[in-house]
Simulated assay, not measured.
Amino acid sequence: METQHERRKRISNRIIWGVLAVAAVLAGVGFQLASHGGPGLLVQSNGNEVGGSFRLDSLGESTVTEGDFHGTWVLVWFFDTNCPEDRCQPVLKSMEHAYQALHAQGVRVSPLAVSLDPFDENEALRNYVIPVAPHVMPFTGTPNMIKAMTAEYHAPDQKEGDHYVPAPRIVIMDPSARYAGTIDATGDADALIARLRQLSKR
């Protein structure tokens, strides 16, 4: 005959297994929603007109989010490594010059170059970006994340020949992760520096 202690133990075990089963189902549903539920579940605007949250992979294969850059002015620009060097590398250089100019004044800046091609290899990204812009941080993301980010950051997500169309503008987020403005991605370092100085003095 089952004792009261054994009965309580049996009921407790059933409750534990029930909770674990529910947690597994919820985790599976969450994964499916995040993978297939649309951009709104991957990137949140957080009240911003342009920009918002993200989850990207660095060259070191660690994951970063917008929270990792709080306290700095964030520059976000989209490109890919098949972009002709004379078209895209001037933009990377201007982001590098902006970083150096403001860093010398004590203004913290985080320039991010996000690949529109989710299959860009880390080595290709490193070789494309670092030699011309060592302080610009290249990132990749899953296809769904890139699609969600381009929608939130108002960047194109279309190909032109063998490469993606680079974003025509650089998005600027302030140290509180609020949208501050944009600037044409022309590769004009002086214009980018002036724009950041203007925004940082508001």
Rank of each mutant, 00 (worst) to 15 (best):
V64F: 13
E152G: 00
M145T: 15
T186V: 02
E85I: 14
G47K: 11
P131I: 15
L75C: 03
V107D: 01
K93L: 06
V43N: 06
G40V: 12
F69I: 02
Q158A: 15
G18A: 07
L192P: 11
M1F: 10
G181I: 00
E123R: 13
F54A: 08
E96L: 11
P175D: 09
W77L: 06
G106Q: 11
G187V: 09
P175L: 12
D68G: 07
T3D: 08
V22P: 07
E121H: 08
D190Y: 00
A21E: 05
L192Q: 12
E85M: 04
P131L: 04
F79Q: 05
S58Q: 12
G18T: 03
L125Q: 13
T150Q: 03
R202I: 13
D188I: 05
N46G: 09
F54G: 03
R14K: 14
Y179R: 06
D188Q: 06
N122H: 14
D120H: 14
V132R: 00
S110N: 09
V129K: 00
R7F: 10
C88N: 04
V64A: 14
P90E: 09
M137L: 14
G187L: 06
D190I: 00
D157F: 13
N144P: 04
G71E: 07
L92Y: 01
P166W: 02
E66K: 10
Q105V: 08
T81R: 07
G141Y: 11
S53I: 00
F79N: 08
G187W: 02
F139C: 07
D117W: 10
V50N: 01
N122F: 06
Q32R: 09
M149I: 10
F31E: 06
A34E: 08
H36I: 06
V91M: 03
F54R: 12
L33N: 08
S62Y: 10
P118G: 09
G18L: 06
A177K: 11
Y99R: 07
V132I: 15
E49L: 15
E49Q: 15
A104T: 08
R14P: 00
D57F: 10
A124I: 08
V74G: 01
D190R: 11
T81M: 02
P90A: 04
A185I: 09
P131C: 07
A167D: 10
C88Q: 06
R108Y: 01
